[in-house]
Each structure stands twice: as C-alpha cells, then as structure tokens.
C-alpha cells in the first residue's frame, strides 16, 4: 500500500521543519565568529581580523541578517505546514513559501558577507518580503471576514491567522534595515530613513514582539492555556518589548544590560518553544505515530522561533547602539 498523498504532505511538512532547523544552524554558524568575537574589550583579546569584519555596522548588519533569516525560516516552515493544511487551494498560497525561502537564502548570504556595502539583490528580496507580508495580511483579513460569522472568535481562532504574514514583513524589514546599517559610512551615525538606526530598530522589534505575542496569546487562549508554559509567550515578550522601548528612548551611553539579558531569554524561549510544541503534538491522540494529523492539529512546531528571530535582532540593535551611541 502506498501513502503517496499523505507522504507528499509529510514531505512538505518534513522539509519545512528540516529547513527551519538547517536554516537556524547555518545562520548561527555563519554568524558565529563576529557574534562571539566582537564585544568591546573582549575583542581585543582575540586574534586580529580584517578591518571590515570588526566594523560595528557590518557586524550589526550581519547579525540582523541572521535574525531576519531565523524569522524567514520560521515563516517558511509555518506557512508550508499551514498552507498544506489549507490544501494550497489558492495558488497565491505558495507565495510565502517562495518569498520566505528566498529571504532565508538572502539572509544566509548577508550573514556570511563581511563587505561594508549593501547588495541590490538583498535589498530587492527583503523589500519583496516586506511587501508580500503586507499583502498576505490583507489576504488573511479578507479570508476571515468572508467566512460565515465574519470577524468572530471562531474565525480568528481557526481561519487564516491574521498575524502570521506579519512575520515575513518583519523579516523583510529587518533585512532591509541591515542593508542600511551595513552601508553607513565610517564615522557617521548609522541611519534608517534618517532616523538613528539602533533606536529605530529597537522600536520596530519591540512592536514585532508585541504583535507576535498577541498572536501566540490568541492561539494559546484557543488552547485555554491548559498548560502553564503557555503563559510564557504572552508575558515574557511584552516585557522585552517594554525594555526595547525604553532603550529606544534612552540617551546615549547606556549599557542596557537587562534588556540584552532579556533578549537572550526570549531567544531561548523561542527555541525551547519548538520542544514544548513537540511535546504538545505528542499529547494528541496517537501522538507522533499520528503525525499526519497531529502536526497539523497540534501546536505549530515552527511558530515559536519567530520570537528567537526577533530577540536576536533586538540584540543586534542593542549592540549597534553600544558601538554607535548615537545610532
């Protein structure tokens, strides 16, 4: 007996999850050296690198690329699973897969790239991602509204998730910002649309954390917060957002130790969330043996790392502010 159709689905889901994992590993590996090596003071103890590698704006840009990549990987996996669940009824449902996959590839490129110049192709991809995130949000709102019952709890719970496409928008935005930071001239304040880059990003990332937390809150409310761990993504990230907000408003020369520390907690939570969701899948009837149902009906494995993506971006923004107190 063959299980072709089911297998195709599992292939999608499996590939998506494998992609998520591989993407995260690659991103971490690609960004490893600068991420560990940079830090003022400690950097001096390490062997010397090419100057561009040490240039804080490039380091920040690469970190931001990495963060955008984690987000893109999460979107790739999540939209693959969810749109497979939706049977790709509309051809447009392939869009987030293509866009997030190219965003992921672009972010890998950007993470590895140590040159202090923006790349037109990265810019184009990131902007495409941002725009498609906006369009996707519109689509999802339209789809919820047209279901019988309209904008009701039922359709917010089980219809197209309104907040999901925002993740690819955020990924694109982070990428786009990274290019602006990267290309800023030595000795000048890194800027995004003439605003200080670090603070602008901190604000954007804080808003992203709030939105993502809202979506987790909606879905965890759907699950009646039956497990106390389900409270984490609705409590920790808003706090992180508040800390980032404070950092964005703060004057130059501040350390933001607590904020940085909190971003690490959020990143850990994002990755640990995959494990908790995997446990959630096992709690459903048939457990992992019934994966062809439970991956779809259980908690979404790829969703939590979006918190990690945002938290990594937050770290990058904070460190940029440290290197460029006026940024």
């Amino acid at each position: 007996m063959t299980e072709f159709d089911t297998d195709r689905g599992s292939l999608n889901a499996g590939l998506a999850i494998a992609g998520l994992l591989a993407g995260s590993v690659l991103l971490l590996a690609a960004g490893r050296a600068p991420a560990n090596g940079h830090r003022n003071g400690r950097a001096a103890a390490l062997p010397p690198r090419r100057s561009s590698r040490k240039r804080p704006t490039v380091v920040a840009a690469r970190r931001l690329n990495r963060a955008a990549g984690v987000l893109a990987a999460s979107v790739l996996a999540d939209s693959s699973v969810e749109h497979y669940r939706g049977s790709f009824k509309n051809k447009a449902m392939y869009t987030p897969l293509i866009v997030s996959a190219s965003t992921l590839a672009t972010s890998l490129h950007g993470t590895a790239d140590a040159r202090p110049a923006a790349h037109w192709f990265r810019d184009a991809t990131y902007l495409t991602a941002a725009v498609s995130g906006l369009i996707g949000t519109g689509f999802h709102i339209y789809n919820v509204g047209k279901k019988v019952g309209g904008f009701s709890w039922q359709n917010f719970f089980y219809g197209a998730p309104i907040g999901a496409p925002m993740a690819i928008l955020l990924s694109g935005l982070l990428g786009f910002c990274s290019e602006r930071v990267r290309e800023s001239r030595k000795g000048t304040r890194p800027e995004i649309f003439q605003l200080p880059a670090g603070r602008t990003m901190a604000a954007v990332i804080g808003a992203g954390l709030l939105g993502t937390s809202g979506e987790a809150g909606l879905l965890h409310f759907r699950g009646a917060f039956h497990n106390p761990f389900m409270l984490l993504p609705v409590t920790l990230p808003p706090l992180g957002a508040a800390l980032l907000g404070r950092a964005a408003l703060a004057g130059p020369g501040q350390q933001h130790r607590a904020t940085r520390w909190w971003m690490r907690v959020l990143a850990a939570m994002g990755f640990a969330g995959v494990g908790l969701h995997a446990y959630g899948v096992s709690r459903n009837m048939g457990g992992w043996r019934n994966w062809s149902q439970n991956i779809l009906n259980g908690p979404p494995l790829p969703a939590p790392p979006s918190f990690a993506g945002l938290a990594l971006a937050g770290l990058a923004a904070l460190e940029l502010m440290e290197d460029h107190p006026d940024a």
């Binding site: 669940r85 049977s87 009837m285 048939g286 043996r289 019934n290 062809s292 149902q293 779809l296 009906n297």
Partner: peptide, 8 residues
C-alpha cells in the same frame, strides 16, 4: 477513524 480523525 481512530486514532487518526480529520483535519480539514
């Protein structure tokens, strides 16, 4: 349909 039920 048990253990697997339906999704869609």
């Amino acid at each position: 349909a048990s253990p697997r039920g339906y999704v869609r």
